[in-house]
Design a protein around this nucleic acid. Structure first.
Lengths: 252, 252
DNA sequence: TCTCCAATAATTGTCAACAATTTATGTTGA
DNA sequence: TCAACATAAATTGTTGACAATTATTGGAGA
C-alpha cells in the first residue's frame, strides 16, 4: 500500500514548506477536491514517496483519497500537463521518467532563467533588506541537512530558488521556476546516486552574499556552477537510471 | 450560438498554423477527445471568436462538441491550468480577463525571455541557414496583413516568436514561449484598440536581419522595443478594457 | 522448454443521473 | 419606485455504471 498522506509525517518539524504550497499567500480561492488530490500526489512525488515510473492506478488513488475516479482523473490530467506524470492512452498514468534530452532542456532553462533572475535582482534598490528571509531559509536548510531530515532539505532547497523569484514579484516567473524546480527534483530522484548529496546550502549562502554585494556576475557564475554541478552529478542520463530497480520493477 | 468550429474557416487559405498546433511534428501521441475540445476552445480564444470574459457554460460546449460534460470539464480545467480560462468554483469557466498586474508580468517575462533567446540564437554556428524558414514565415505574415486576413495574421505573428525558440530546440523554452504568446494574444484582445494594428512584420523582419548579422545587442534592442511598443499600445490596463461591452454584457 | 494463442481479469474511457450551489424571476411591503 | 425575500430555473460538483481497451493467466502445440 502506498503511503501518500503527508499530514502525519515527522518531516514538518522544521516547518519546511510543502512543494505544493508555493502559491501566493493572498490566494484566497477555495481549494477544490481536485486541488487536494493534485497537491498530495505532487508532494508525494517531490518527497520521493512516489518514484519516477511508478504506476498511478486510478482505483488505488480513489481508495487513498476517498473520492471518485473522476476527481483522480482530473488531478492526474493536470499533473500530466505540468509534466509530473505521463499519461499513456488506455494504459494509465505514470510518474514522469525524464530522458536525457528532457534533462538537458530543463537544466539549460534553469541556468538561463535563474541567471536572468539574478540580473534583475541586483537591480532592485532595497535588495539587502529583501534578502533577509532568504538567509533565514538557508539557515533552516542547513539545519535540515545536519539533522538528516532529507524531505525538509529537499523542500527547502527547492524553495530557495523559487523564493528568489518571489523577490521580483513577477507571478509568471514564479510559476515557471516552480515548475522547473519540481521537474529537477524528479530528475534527481531518477538519476542521482543516493547518498552523494553535496551540501547545497553553502552554495546558496554564497549566492545570497554575492547578490547582497551587488555582484551580478559573481552571483550568476555561482548559480551557473551550482546548477551545472547538479546536472553533472546525474550519472549520464543517456544510460538510464542509476537504480536498476527503477527501470525494472516499478513500471508494470 | 457560438461559432466555434474552425475547420471551415476561410482563414486557412494562407496556411497559417493554428495556435494549438505548436507541438513537435514528431509528437505521434494520439489526440484524445479532451485534447480536441481543448484545442478547439484554445483556437477560438486565440482567433478572438471567444472574447475575454465570455462565459463557457458546460452544457453549451457539450452540444457544440457532441460530447459529455466530463470531457468538457477536463478540457476546461486544463485551460484554466494554462491561464486561458478562469474557473470560479460553483460559478463556471470564463475566458481569462487579464488585469493590469498580470499584463505587466506577462510582458516583462516576454521581454526577458525573448532577449535571452536571442542571445542564445546568435551563438549558434549555422544560424543563417536556420533563419530561412523564419523569413518565409514573415513573408506570409505580411501577405496576411495586406489581405486583411486578421486571423492568419495573429497566428503567424505569434508563431514567429515561438518559432524563434524552436530554433534552439529546447522544448521547455518552446512551451514557455507558447504559453506567454497565447496569454499576450488574450491581453491584446482585451485591451488593444481595434484597428490600430501596427504592421509588426516589419519589426519581425528587422529582428531576423540583426540575428543574421550576429548583432545580438541590436536584435535584443529591437525585440525589447517591439514588445514594449505592444505593451504601451494597451490603453492603460488600470482602467479596464477599451470596449465597455466586454466589461458589461459578456460576463453574466 | 519455449512460443503462440485464447480466455479471463484488471484498468481506462465515456456517459448519464443525482445532489449542491448559484442565478434568475416574481411577489410583497414600505 | 425600490429593496428584500421566497420560489423556480439553470448550472456546477460528484458519483456510480457500462463500454472499450489493455494486461495477465493458463494451456496447447511444436
Amino acid at each position: 500500500m502506498l503511503y501518500l498522506h503527508s499530514n502525519s509525517a515527522s518531516a514538518d518539524t522544521l516547518e519546511a514548506p510543502k512543494a505544493s504550497s508555493w502559491r501566493s499567500a493572498y490566494d484566497t480561492s477555495p481549494r477544490s477536491e481536485v486541488d487536494r488530490v493534485y497537491d498530495d500526489i505532487f508532494d508525494a512525488v517531490m518527497d520521493r514517496r512516489l518514484l519516477p515510473g511508478a504506476k498511478l492506478t486510478e482505483a488505488t488513488l480513489c481508495k487513498i483519497f476517498s473520492c471518485s475516479r473522476n476527481i483522480v482523473r482530473m488531478a492526474l490530467s493536470q499533473l500530466a500537463h505540468d509534466k509530473i506524470v505521463v499519461i499513456e492512452p488506455n494504459r494509465g498514468a505514470f510518474v514522469w521518467q525524464p530522458n536525457a534530452k528532457e534533462t538537458r532542456d530543463v537544466f539549460e532553462m534553469r541556468r538561463a532563467m535563474e541567471c536572468m533572475t539574478l540580473d534583475m535582482l541586483v537591480a532592485l534598490p532595497d535588495i539587502q533588506t529583501r534578502l533577509l528571509p532568504l538567509y533565514d531559509m538557508v539557515a533552516r536548510e542547513r539545519k535540515a541537512f545536519e539533522c538528516g531530515d532529507r524531505i525538509s532539505w529537499i523542500r527547502l532547497s527547492n524553495a530557495f530558488h523559487v523564493e528568489l523569484a518571489h523577490l521580483l514579484g513577477n507571478d509568471v516567473l514564479i510559476e515557471m521556476l516552480h515548475s522547473l524546480c519540481a521537474r529537477t527534483t524528479l530528475i534527481i530522484a531518477y538519476y542521482d546516486t543516493p547518498g552523494q548529496s553535496t551540501c547545497s546550502y553553502l552554495e546558496h549562502q554564497d549566492i545570497l552574499d554575492r547578490i547582497a554585494q551587488g555582484d551580478a556576475a559573481g552571483a550568476k557564475a555561482a548559480m551557473h556552477h551550482h546548477l551545472e554541478d547538479c546536472e553533472h552529478r546525474m550519472n549520464d542520463p543517456e544510460k538510464g537510471p542509476v537504480d536498476p530497480w527503477l527501470a525494472i520493477s516499478i513500471k508494470r
